[in-house]
């Protein structure tokens, strides 16, 4: 009975979604702001990757709010999981091959993550993608050796400093230019590594913050007490 009702619900939902979606006109832009940004962004921001230009230039406050949500989620996960007992059971460490492989992979992942962060305004990539890769680098180590500790105080410091740097750059722009998070420092030549004003700095701050938060969340989950079974 309950399954029948659920199936009816799903069928109705699918019908409604299809009815709405059949009204959409694909291929024609549903709003004009995209075309406008495409026209003015190369001159105003100077970043080759227009997605990053929108993310950090035109929607910077939105990105700040998104960082705040991620920060709240990471903090809440840490509070909910709490501190483990000193004598709680730990997972056994991985084998020799796994540990050596993790040690070899760690610097490579760090380099890839930093590269993706640093070139976010030129090629696909940026703070979020690079931050996730950085977090994965630390997590490979934790998975291979569960007995090794990640220092939560250090992670919190990196997280806090990166977040403060993002806001400080925004306030600096507010003082200089009159707009919060307005691009500063000149645009430079498009396509150079040091171009697009403050965008690479903001990208670096986001990358460090996202990486530290996700690594902290995963370390908390990894350190949660395992059931006896």
């Amino acid at each position: 009975m309950r399954n029948l009702a659920s199936l009816l619900f799903a069928g109705g939902l699918a019908f409604l979604l299809l009815a709405i979606a059949s009204q959409l006109a694909f291929g024609t832009p549903s709003m004009r702001v995209g075309a406008e940004i495409l026209a003015v962004a190369p001159d105003e921001v100077g970043a080759a990757n227009l997605v990053t230009a929108v993310l950090l230039g035109y929607r910077g406050i939105d990105t700040l709010g998104e960082l705040a949500i991620l920060f709240a989620a990471a903090t809440a996960a840490g509070v909910v999981l709490g501190r483990r007992h000193a004598n709680a059971r730990r997972d056994p460490p991985g084998g020799e091959v796994l540990r050596t492989g993790a040690d070899l992979l760690f610097p490579l992942l760090l380099v890839v993550g930093l590269y993706v962060i640093a070139h976010g305004h030129l090629t696909p990539g940026g703070g979020f993608q690079g931050g996730v890769i950085l977090a994965a680098a630390f997590f490979v180590i934790i998975l291979a050796q569960p007995t090794r500790h990640l220092r939560h105080s250090l992670i919190s410091w990196i997280e806090g400093l990166a977040g403060a740097a993002f806001i400080l750059i925004g306030l600096w722009a507010l003082v200089e230019d009159g707009d919060f998070l307005a691009p500063l420092l000149g645009q430079g030549a498009m396509g150079e590594l040091l171009s697009a004003g403050t965008l690479p700095l903001l990208s670096l701050a986001i990358g460090l913050k996202v990486g530290a938060e996700l690594a902290g969340i995963m370390a908390h989950i990894a350190e949660a007490e395992a059931p006896d079974a």
Partner: peptide, 23 residues
């Protein structure tokens, strides 16, 4: 890129780790 790093990698790792913690 984000989906490849998050959806196919990180999210799977978090869920698999949770499976271990949930028995």
């Amino acid at each position: 890129m984000t989906e490849a790093a998050v959806g196919a990698g990180l999210s799977g790792v978090i869920l698999a780790l949770a499976l271990r913690r949930l028995g």
